[in-house]
Structure formats: C-alpha cells, structure tokens
Design a protein around this nucleic acid. Structure first.
Lengths: 252, 252
DNA sequence: ACAAAAGTGTTGCGCCTACACCCATGC
DNA sequence: GCATGGGTGTAGGCGCAACACTTTTGT
C-alpha cells in the first residue's frame, strides 16, 4: 500500500465563479466570470481561476472560500466542489487542485474589483487561461447547465426578491434558449421552491409583476449525505424537473 | 495568495468498489463491497476502503486504479471520481483523499481475494470503518442510486451477455424496489443502450429469454468535457430516464 | 396439463407544449 | 388608446404506470 514518498505533491484550491450580468451587446442576462491575472512564474501575465494553497489547518471548502475572499472579495451564495484535478503535467511542479464552483448574485458581484488584477469576462469569451483552467471552466459550465435542470441553483443568481421573469431569465441565459413564460410559471409554481410575497414591481410600462423569494427551508441543491453536518435543512424535493430537453433524453 | 507552507499535506486515493452478488438470505441480487483490513497504526485492525498514496508520477485516476489492483486485484469496468475529502481532522496526520467509486461485474469480483486482509460485505451491513470512510461509503451509495436513473452504469454490473430480467435485477437491487417487467422492457428497448443478440437462455423451466449486450459505442455515463482525452466514443444520449421516482420529483 | 417467466397489448392519467386570450400599468 | 409584459385558459400529444393477456419452455 505505501508507495514512494508523497510529500512532493502540493494541494491547491481554485474556484470557478459565475454571475449573471447583462450582455454588453444585447443587454440580456449572460454568464460572466471573474478571472485573476497571474503575477508569478508559471504562466505569469496569463489569466487564471482565483485560488491558492490549502493551509495546513484549513478544510478544503473553507480554504476555497478563504482564497476566494482574499483574491476576489467574494462570499458566494452557493459553493460546491466540482472536481479534483491532478494530472502529472498540469503544472511544472506537482499540484493537485481541488476545484470548486460558486454562484454569486448581482449584489455580491459588485464587491468584486474590476481592475488590472481581476477582471470580468463573458463565460464563453474568456481568453486562453493558465494551466488546465480552460478545461476546468468548460467542465464547470457543463455542470452548471446540467444541474440547472434538476436543482434550484438558478435562485442563487438572484437577490432576495425577484420576479418570475427574472428567474426565467436565469434559465434562459444558462440554457441558451427561450422558455414559454406561461409554462415556466406553472412549472415553478407547482413546486415549493419559491414563495410569493405581497410586493410587486412598479414603474415599468406594463402590468406590475409579483415578487417572489426563495423558500428558506430548501437548499439550492441536494448533495445527499455530503450535506455539511451543520444545520442545513435540506429536504430532497421539488426541483422543477423538466425545463431542459425538448430533444431526446440526454445524459447528466 | 501564497499561504503557509503546504508541504505537510499528503494526497491519497481510495475507492468504493461495488459489485452485485446474491443476498445470503434471499438469493436476490444485492450490493456488496470489498473492504481491506488496516495493518498499520491509525485504526489498525479496522476495516477501511482500499487505497494508498498517490505516487509523484501518477495521475489521480491512474493512481486509484493502481492501488486498486495492488490491494484487491480488481480492474474495474467503471471508475469515476467521487469526491475529494480533506477535513483537517479526518486523520491524525493531514491527508486529502481523492475518492473514486468503481463498479465491477461478477467475473471481476471473482478475482478479489476473500481472506483475512480483504473481505466482502453487504453494502448496507458493513462494520464501522476507519477514518471518515463510513460517510464516504454512504455518499457513494447515494450517488450510485441517483446515477442509476440517468445513465447506463447498471450495465457495468453485468457480464458480456445478459437478459433483460438480469438488467432489471440490477435496477431493483440498487433502487430497492421492484419494477414492472413489461414497462422496463419498453423503456430500455426504446434507447440504443443495449443491443439484442441471436442467443437465448435455455434450461430454465420457462420460456427462453433473449440475450442482450451493451452497445459498445456508448460509454456508461456522460461526464461531459471531463471525458478522458483518449478515444472514448461518448455520445450523450439515450439513458433510460425515468425508472426512478413514482413520488414527486426528487433531487439529484 | 401446469407453472413460471418472457414478451405484447391496451387504457388512463399526468405533464409538457403551443398558442390564444385577458389584465394592468405607463405613456 | 396603445404598447408591453404579466398572468390565465385550453387542446393536443407523449410517456409512463398498471394490468390483462399471449407465448414458450421444463417438468
């Protein structure tokens, strides 16, 4: 069982952060992600995912959250482990990266600096990244699009109160196609994922829209027995199942 | 970004191996997993998941496969990364474990020794395990049960040729409930996941059953952009979608 | 003949799609 | 009044669950 000395492997965390912001051309909601510019040797000057080393006294998720706050000043609404990348040649030195993905809503996105070190990019128009980060981003987006259809993570993109049109906009941005407003409404209202409030919008040049809020008793996603032993009231139900495929059943 | 020196963290791999074998009481197919007895200090004498250290020149999945062969003599039909566990206190020393899960079919299960060092246990009746391995096993089984409903991994439990009744038995064992043979047949036949052969069973005291084989052009699961850059012909389609929930839509 | 599992037919129901239509507000 | 999106109604179709029924073997 015991192999060669393993102390030469270092452990890092990185996070793919995704937020919804207006597309510069169309104005429609689109996926954006903040990237950081590398200032040290491997891939110096390239853009890369925010991250850093795991401290000796940090759990992995804690470490991801800490590096996130340090590098991009984000405290995400949703944070989930994506995958562990550990190919031998993915870095000049041997590094195993535990990669997380995070969803932030617009308020939080504001706190991210947009300067020489950190910049927001459209998720599908980012420059070539350092290390194997291109592949990682691609996988994160694939996972996001899949998970959208069987969880409530769409809500993690929005603020406290939102209209059904805004929620639908999230789905449309992530799935890349329009959805029927009438049918979307019925599907999402049949679940208990969101709760209506008494408030409505106003000032638009059309009928006011009711504002909804996330059901606080439900987590954004059901990660099963992995639910942190803390006080998460994860019930496994009501997910707005089949927004996704008009075409034949596809894998996840 | 750079934190304290991270060289004190060691990286290990472990694997939850699952196979289908008859239940000792009922004879019906049931989930079994081989565990190894620890022979060194932390948790010496306890049962634990097979695994070991990641070598400096090994990729993570290669390492998992290698440790698997060394400890349990298994070359699994299906191997997928499950999760990275890295809580600070999960081991006396600081260890980050990249955990995989593997499915083996009966032939391969034969090659696993069943002796003082390695023993097969019913998946839901195993003894208390070393480290956080109880939690890991629980998560692996949850993932297996979920993934069963939107992938073809059930076939990884079976040999080259199998009847629809055998395939249905896999689903029934994993999901823990019976399925209607007629509806199951139609659902699975509508996909191109399995192909009929000319062969049939014989010797049973009832009508012979046609033998099927896995469609070699399809991977057991679609892991998206993570598909190893090698020659996997992963097409993303035809998964036998809704065997699962008679009750309200549940999370994954 | 009978048991038992393989395999086929049929019906009902729920959900999803598409699209027509009404409602309430700003201008 | 009119444009615009919010919100409701409704008909068609597909897929699944349930279960009756036929087929083919071994004993």
């Amino acid at each position: 069982m015991t192999q060669t000395d393993p102390t030469s492997i270092r452990v890092a965390v990185s996070t793919v952060i995704v937020a919804l912001r207006p597309h510069p051309d169309t104005g429609a909601p689109a996926l954006w992600m903040p990237l950081v510019r590398r200032v040290t040797d491997p891939f110096e000057g390239s853009w890369a995912l925010p991250g850093g080393w795991v401290g000796p006294d940090e759990g992995l998720e804690d470490s991801a959250a800490a590096r996130l706050r340090e590098t991009t000043n984000v405290q995400p609404r949703y944070l989930e482990q994506l995958y562990a990348f550990g190919d031998v040649d993915r870095s000049p030195s041997r590094v195993v990266s535990i990669v997380y993905w995070a969803l932030v809503h617009p308020d939080e996105a504001e706190s991210v600096p947009d300067d020489w070190n950190v910049r927001w990019f459209l998720a599908d128009e980012h420059p070539a990244l350092a290390f194997d980060h291109d592949r990682i981003v691609e996988y994160a987006l694939w996972r996001l699009r899949n998970k959208m259809s069987y969880s409530r993570i769409a809500q993690a993109f929005l603020g406290d109160r939102f209209t059904l049109a805004e929620l639908r906009g999230v789905y449309e941005a992530v799935l890349g196609r329009t959805l029927d407003p009438a049918n979307f409404r019925r599907q999402v209202e049949r679940t208990d994922a969101i709760l209506p409030t008494d408030e409505t919008t106003s000032g638009d040049r059309h009928r006011p829209a009711r504002l909804y809020r996330s059901n606080p008793d439900l987590a954004y996603a059901d990660n099963g027995p992995l639910t942190d032993t803390t006080t998460r009231t994860t019930t496994g139900a009501t997910t707005l199942a089949t927004v996704l495929p008009p075409r034949s059943t596809s894998n996840r």
